[in-house]
């Protein structure tokens, strides 16, 4: 317990230091840092309490995961406004791969079938799928505008609408996958990732921490790939009209 108090006090101390430096150097960040720290404190306290509740009443894990999914869907949807029915499509693209992979990991026994294992696993995979969905969607939106001439040229040369869109779609998915692939490639070299650090701090053996980190990273690559591809596919279907035409985007950027 005393270590918990020490953690909060130390964190607050560093916030005070950062605020002091920012005032001293007139960076104009003092207020922002203070607000961010308060928000982080409040949010984590609430999440901690909620998770404690979930651990006491495991049925609540489903509600908790549902809320995470809904938040992710709204967040991703908001970032790719302009794609038709963005929120619903983002939600589907996040939910199917993240929940599917969570289920698979629990089923094969990689993690215990408990709220304590299931909720964080779902959380990390939802987070990855959210990032991939957002990146794919944003890149796809840009491509549909920037490459409109090329897409039209392909249609005029007799390509089907799907074929005309394919190069832009493929590029948007590959771009979205770069961060997670980089992260996987460089794990342990540049930084120690969060899962690993958390487990070590929590008292797990280094071997156990490494294995857990590995399965999380490799699952993330597949989940993010699936999420990006799903969003791209759903968007492409929405954009293709009868007569090999492509719907004009309703963009408000």
């Amino acid at each position: 317990m005393s270590s918990m108090v020490a953690k909060v006090v130390a964190g607050a101390g560093f916030t005070v230091l950062a605020v002091f430096l920012s005032l001293r150097l007139r960076l104009g960040l003092a207020r922002e840092i203070g607000v961010a720290a308060l928000r982080a404190g409040t949010q984590l306290a609430v999440v901690g309490a909620l998770i404690a509740l979930v651990f006491s009443y495991p049925v609540l894990s489903f509600a908790f995961v549902a809320v995470m999914l809904a938040t992710a869907g709204v967040t991703a949807g908001g970032r790719v406004k302009g794609l038709p029915r963005a929120r619903l499509r983002a939600l589907i693209s996040i939910a199917i791969p993240a929940l599917g992979a969570t289920g698979a990991l629990l089923l094969v026994g990689a993690f215990d079938f408990t709220a304590r294992s299931g909720v964080p696993t779902a959380g990390i995979l939802i987070g990855g799928a959210l990032a991939a969905t957002t990146l794919t969607g944003r890149r796809l939106l840009e491509a549909l505008v920037d490459e409109a001439g090329e897409i039209e040229a392909r249609l005029c040369l007799g390509d089907a609408a799907r074929a005309a869109l394919q190069p832009s779609v493929r590029k948007s998915v590959t771009t979205a996958l770069i961060p997670v692939i980089d992260q996987t490639r460089s794990v342990g070299l540049v930084t120690l990732p969060g899962t690993f650090v958390g487990l070590i701090l929590g008292g797990a053996s280094p071997a156990e921490a490494a294995a857990t980190q590995l399965v999380v990273l490799l699952t993330l690559v597949a989940v993010e790939l699936a999420a990006g591809m799903l969003l791209a596919e759903l968007t492409m279907r929405a954009l293709i009209l009868p007569g090999e035409r492509i719907a004009p985007l309703q963009i408000e950027r």
Partner: peptide, 20 residues
Amino acid sequence: DARVLRRRVGFVAQTPAMLP
């Protein structure tokens, strides 16, 4: 079929985009 139509009737846009 629109693909056939667009081969029988060629359209050249005002500032045509080149494919890679």
